[in-house]
Simulated assay, not measured.
Amino acid sequence: MACKRKEQEQQKDRSLQPKKQRLVFTDLQRRTLIAIFKENKRPSKEMQMTISQQLGLELNTVSNFFMNARRRCMNRWQEEPGANPGVPSSSTSTFSKA
């Protein structure tokens, strides 16, 4: 019972806080992040910190961008078909739900 009560209290606390608004990248931020991703799929933490400072974003946001980009495989952002060997160049990828 104690765990359930604690969960209910946490839910009440969350409902009192205003919902955090979703971040939408500016065109410059998005193009910069995509260009960097094309060059380096896994930038170091130091590089991510530099990117976040230059673009005025939080480190967590930049880190999440690269993590999500890798997860989505970003094939649609390749400049030319066949630019990266071993990576399908078609822009239509099929994703299956697990």
Rank of each mutant, 00 (worst) to 15 (best):
M1Y: 11
M1S: 09
A2T: 14
K4W: 07
K6H: 03
K6F: 05
E7Q: 14
E9L: 08
E9G: 01
Q10I: 11
Q10E: 15
Q10H: 09
Q10M: 11
D13F: 09
R14G: 06
R14T: 04
S15F: 10
S15Y: 14
S15G: 03
S15A: 14
Q17L: 14
P18K: 06
P18Y: 01
P18N: 04
P18S: 03
K19D: 04
K20V: 06
Q21M: 06
R22V: 10
R22Y: 03
L23T: 03
L23E: 02
L23N: 03
L23W: 07
V24S: 11
V24Y: 13
V24R: 12
F25L: 12
T26S: 14
T26R: 02
D27Y: 09
L28Q: 13
L28N: 15
L28E: 14
Q29K: 00
Q29C: 03
Q29A: 01
R30F: 15
R30C: 09
R30N: 08
R30L: 13
R31D: 15
R31M: 11
L33Y: 10
I34M: 12
A35W: 01
I36Q: 07
F37Y: 14
F37P: 00
K38Y: 04
N40R: 01
N40K: 13
K41E: 14
K41H: 15
K41C: 13
K41L: 09
R42P: 00
P43Y: 07
K45L: 13
E46H: 05
E46N: 09
E46F: 10
M47H: 15
Q48C: 13
Q48W: 05
M49Q: 14
M49K: 09
T50D: 12
S52Y: 07
Q53W: 05
Q54W: 05
L55N: 04
L57A: 02
L57Q: 05
E58K: 06
E58P: 02
E58S: 13
E58N: 11
N60F: 11
T61M: 06
T61C: 04
T61H: 02
V62F: 03
V62K: 00
V62D: 01
S63Q: 05
N64A: 12
F65D: 02
F66M: 01
F66G: 02
F66L: 02
F66H: 03
M67K: 15
M67H: 11
A69E: 00
R71D: 10
R71S: 11
R72E: 09
R72Q: 08
M74I: 02
N75E: 09
R76D: 01
W77I: 04
W77Q: 03
P81Y: 02
P81I: 01
G82D: 05
P85M: 08
V87C: 08
S89D: 10
S90D: 07
S90R: 08
T92N: 07
T92A: 05
S96F: 03
K97V: 10
K97E: 12
A98Q: 10
A98L: 15
